[in-house]
Structure formats: structure tokens, C-alpha cells
Simulated assay, not measured.
Amino acid sequence: MSLATAAVGGTRSSQLSPAKATGSVASFFRGIVPDWHSDWAWDHYEPTILALAHQFGLHRVCEIGGGRDPMFSRGEAARHGLELTVNDIDAGELALTPAGLKTARFDIAGDLSEPDIARGGYDLMVSRMVFEHVGDVERAWTNIHALLAPGGVALAFIPTLWAPVFALNHILPEKASRAIVHALFPARRDGGGAPKFPALYDWCRGSRSRLEPMLNRAGFRDVHIQRFWGHDYFKRMPGLKQADHAFNALAARIGWDFVTTYAYVVVRKDKA
């Protein structure tokens, strides 16, 4: 049983256990056959990471922007054979990292001069809902290339423009978009929950033709963009919910990159 199979359980687990994949990240995703809807992306984020680690023999993992809510506890990481380092730019967020996990404070889009930098020190770098807050995403990917060991993999789970819900968030003043998020998801954003940071959406797109040249400049040749459509922002709005689902289902069926809602941006560094 693979790490991914053990992680997801149930009938859907076999989707994350490709029988045989070549060395490319694109062939890996062809093997696991993701669904078009973003529910799959959220439900299978951790299992996909475990499957990548298993498929490509990756052990030293850095979670970018993990802060207070890393994907695995120390015990879970150990059970999966992973050496997990939790990264964040904010010392306050890192102070909330669960006990026992290694932390590293640095700006992924910075100059890599911070003491916690480990060039070539990670086999796998991952992030979830982080890159939309980064001001210079191309520099971040260039830095990820420097931080990955040869043959290392990076996966960024991002919201994308121009999905209407994120286009609105991008266009509205931050005060207005914050109020809308609080109204739609009070449990997520109020009190001690995850804070809402300003979203910039630099290079947050679901189109391979748009992203690949930038990722090539960052040093990557093995590139895959796994596109997803749909969201749960309208789940309390009957009528609008159904209309939006129909729109996204059609966009997925015809492969309309312009209105993807989320994407996994996945790259692999050349082997030495």
C-alpha cells in the first residue's frame, strides 16, 4: 500500500496510486486522474503531496506559509517518512506552529539571505493559498528552484483569475472584500481563525501557456498546471449556486482556462 493509499482510505484512494508513472509531473497527474471540480483539489491536497513524495522519493519537505496551520503534525509527518519544516515570513505565525515541528522564517520572494535558508535543502516544497499574497511570484519560483535539491518537486495550490469570485476580490477595496468574506465564512475568519491577508494575484492563473514561460525563466522545464473549476462561496445562495455550478461545469468541459477557480502549479527541478 502506498503512502497516498494509506492517507485517503475508502473507494477514492486508488485514484492517487498511479500504477506506473514516468519521471514527469504531468504523467504523474495523468495517472491519478483528478476531477474537474475544486472539491477534489481541497479533499486531495495532502494525499496528492504524499503520492508525489512516494512516487519521486521525496522526504525533506518545506511547507511555505504553513505558520499556525501546517498540513501535518510531527507524528503524522514521521509516520509518512517526511522531515517537515514549516515556513512563514511572520514570526507571530510561526510562534503558533504546533510543538515539535521544525520552523524556518524567511520570505519566499526575498533575497534568500535569512539565517534559516537552506539552499538545495528540500526535496519537496508545497503551499496552499499563499501565492496570491506574494508580490513577486516569479522571484518566489526562482527562489524555490534554488531551495530545491536536484530532482525536487514543488506544488503551489492557488486561487486563479479570472474566476468571477476572485476577480471581484481582486477589484474591490480590501475593506470591502474582507467584509464579504466575514459575512460568507464567519467561522473561518473571525476570532482565532485564519486571518485574511491582502490578495495580489500575481501570476495566479490557470493557463499553462501563460505560466510556463515564467516558470521556465525560474529554471524549471518539467511543468504541470492542474486546473480546477467551481467553489463553495455560493453554497448558501439557492439559484445562484446552481447557475454558478452549471457555468463552471461548462467551462471545465470546454477547458476554458480564463475562468479556472483554482490550480495546482507543479514543477520539478532537473536532476544533477
Rank of each mutant, 00 (worst) to 15 (best):
V8F: 11
G9L: 06
T11L: 14
L16C: 12
K20T: 06
S27V: 02
F28C: 03
F29K: 02
G31T: 05
H44W: 13
E46R: 15
E46T: 15
T48S: 14
L50C: 06
I64H: 00
G65F: 07
G67R: 05
D69P: 01
P70K: 01
M71H: 13
M71A: 14
R74I: 03
T85H: 00
V86N: 07
A91P: 08
G92E: 07
E93N: 08
E93M: 12
A95D: 09
A99E: 10
A104K: 00
G110W: 04
P115E: 11
P115R: 09
D116Y: 04
D116G: 03
G120E: 00
Y122L: 00
R128C: 08
R128H: 10
E132I: 07
G135N: 12
V137S: 14
V137A: 14
T142Y: 02
P150H: 08
V153G: 01
A154T: 10
P159C: 14
L161E: 15
A163P: 09
N169T: 14
P173D: 10
E174Q: 15
I180A: 07
V181E: 13
F185C: 07
A187Q: 07
D190V: 04
G192P: 08
G192E: 13
A199V: 13
L200C: 09
W203M: 15
G206K: 09
S207H: 07
M214L: 15
G219N: 01
R221M: 03
V223C: 08
H224M: 12
H224T: 14
Q226W: 07
R227E: 11
K235H: 10
M237Q: 08
M237W: 10
P238S: 00
G239A: 04
Q242S: 15
D244K: 07
A246N: 05
D257G: 12
F258R: 15
V259W: 07
Y262Q: 14
A263R: 13
K269M: 04
